[in-house]
Amino acid sequence: MEMRSDLSISGIGRSQGGSYSHVRTDGMAKINGDTDCISLDNNGTLTIEGALQSETVSVNGTATVEGALKANRMILDGMATIKEHAVCQELLTVNGRLSIGGRLDGEKVEVFGILKTRDDVQCELLSVHGGFSIDGLLNAGLIDVKMNMPCKAQEIGGESITVRRLKKISVIEQFVPVLSAKLQAHTIEGDEIYLEHTEAEIVRGNDVIIGKGCKIGRVEYKNQLTRDEDAQIGAAYQI
């Protein structure tokens, strides 16, 4: 069995990458190279000049991973940037802001803040209390979004999709629409769909509810379509 030592950095310090048991950083820390560990606990500012693989990752502060990230569980309280793709096999919880330069794959993703990716997001459950910006496809079995800031994705697909708004329109949003808490997507497709304050070209599903504040170009539904009197729909077809 491989023997691993612990790595601890306090204050301002740096270390080489490698295989460790437990990594703990307090202060300003830099790790040069790929890092493989059982757990990583960061309090402060951490930069990893390489990829990170760990069973658990806890960030309380800020962190930058220059390569890819692979973990079973990650809890972020603060801000983190992953320059390449990220995999969180069990749970990803974002209390703050997470930016990913590639795609995100996971099982359960919870966002209490902002998630940004430059590629697709694939997971079983996505729960959002805040906002997101996904440059590719968002695909999840269950999608539950409660917006209080802008959300956007190229395409959204899932079995159950619910999009609601957490707050009323503020004075700032009335004059600066880009800050408005709404969802923008080209295509939204699922079995059960409920949308509020959503702009999309195409919405396609079995049972579809288009709520208040929606602007939809085309709705295709199999079983039932319900629309709010405030919603704008260009065309609707039962298929």
Rank of each mutant, 00 (worst) to 15 (best):
E199V: 15
L137H: 15
E124A: 11
N43T: 13
D77T: 03
G44E: 01
I75D: 03
I38E: 15
S99Q: 08
E124C: 03
I233V: 14
L137E: 13
I233A: 06
S160Q: 07
E192S: 13
S127L: 09
T198W: 07
I188L: 11
D41W: 00
Q238N: 09
T162G: 02
N43I: 00
R103W: 06
S5W: 04
E49M: 09
D105L: 10
F132D: 05
T198C: 12
A68L: 03
M79K: 15
A236Y: 01
M3T: 11
I134P: 04
E220C: 12
A235S: 15
G158M: 10
G213L: 11
S133N: 07
L183H: 11
M1W: 01
Q53A: 14
F112A: 06
K70Q: 12
G141I: 03
S127G: 05
S133R: 12
I161W: 00
I209N: 08
V65L: 12
E124Q: 13
T117Y: 05
T35A: 04
N43Q: 09
I161H: 07
R14F: 08
I12V: 15
N60K: 09
V59E: 01
L195S: 05
G113H: 06
A200D: 02
L40T: 01
G205W: 14
F132V: 05
E192D: 14
D6C: 02
G190Q: 04
V59P: 01
K83V: 01
F112D: 13
C88W: 12
K83D: 00
K212Y: 07
G17I: 08
E192P: 00
L115A: 11
Q184D: 06
G234D: 03
D77L: 02
G234K: 08
H85M: 04
S127Y: 03
G50V: 10
E124P: 00
H197I: 02
E84N: 14
I143K: 07
Q89H: 08
E220P: 03
V57N: 03
E84Y: 06
M1I: 06
P177M: 10
G27L: 02
E2D: 02
T226S: 13
L40G: 06
L52H: 10
I210D: 08
Y221I: 05
S19D: 10
